[in-house]
Amino acid sequence: MPRPELRFEAIGVPWAIETAEPLPATTVAAIHERIARFDRDYSRFRADSLVSRITREPGRWRLPDDAGPLLDLYRLLYDATDGAMNPLVGQRLEELGYDRDYTLRARAGAATRIPSWEEAISWDGSHLTTLTPVVLDIGAAGKGYLIDLVADLLRECGVDDYLIDASGDLLHRGPDTVRVGLEHPWDPTMAIGVYELSNGALCASAPGRRAWSDGLHHILDATSGEPTRTVAATWVRADSALEADALATALFFASEARLSEVVPEFEYARMMPDGRVGRSERFNGELFL
C-alpha cells in the first residue's frame, strides 16, 4: 500500500511529505504557514523579506528566533572552509545573474569582492549587526533548515512517522528504512549509488542543474567570488537536515576531517568532475564503481 503523501510547491521547488496516516487539514495549513514565514524572513527573492530590508542599509537587526542554529552553523563552517562558504555571497550571485528576476546573465565588468564575515557582519545570537549593506544568501543550508522546522511542526502535531522530500533533500523519522537513489549529477535518470536512510537526513548538492551561462552556478567560493569547479556533487547523511544540507556545500571546500570538528557524526559521498568518487568510512549504502 502506498502511504499517504502531501504534495505542494514551496520556495521554488516541489515538496512531498509521506506519512503513515493522512495529515489533517489543520496540520497542512500549519505547514504552509510555517514555510511562508520562513520565506518572508529569509528569501532574497522577495522585496518584502527581512533579508531584502537588510540589503538596503546597515544596522542592527533583530533576527527571528529560528535564526540561531542557522547562523551559528554558518559561522562554524565559514571558519572550517577558510571563508569559502559564506552567507554574504548574495550580491555576487546577483551580479552573476542569479537574482530575483532570474536575469541569468553576468553583469559585464562587475566583480564585487565578497566581504569577509568580520568586516561586514557580527552575530550575537539574536541580533545581526551589518556594517555595510549586505545581501545575505542562506542557500547553502536554508532548505535543509526549513525541512527541520517543518519536522518540528509535525512532531508538535503528533506525527512521528514521516518522510519529507524537498526536491532531493530528505528527512526521515519512523520505524522503516528508505532506499534512496543518489542522483547522477549529469543524468537525472541515473544513480551513482543507493543509500539506506532511517531516522536521519540525507541532502545532496550538485550545481549542474542550476548552471546557467558560461558554466555559472550557485555554489560560489567566497574567497574567489567564482563558482567552484573542484567537485561535481556531494551527498551527506546527518542527524538534522540543516547539518546535512550545510555539509553538502561545505564538502565542496573542505576535508571530512576538518568538517567533523564542526559536526562530529556524518556520512558522505563526494564525486569529482571526472567521475571519481569518495566516501566516508562508514556509509550506509552502496556506490556503483
Binding site: 532531493g168 544513480a191 550545481p207
Partner: peptide, 17 residues
C-alpha cells in the same frame, strides 16, 4: 551510473529541480 528505473528506490537525493 545505473538507471534509476532498475534500482527499486523510493526516493532520489540529488540537485533540486
Amino acid at each position: 551510473g545505473k538507471k534509476l528505473d532498475a534500482l527499486n528506490v523510493s526516493r532520489v537525493a540529488g540537485s533540486s529541480l
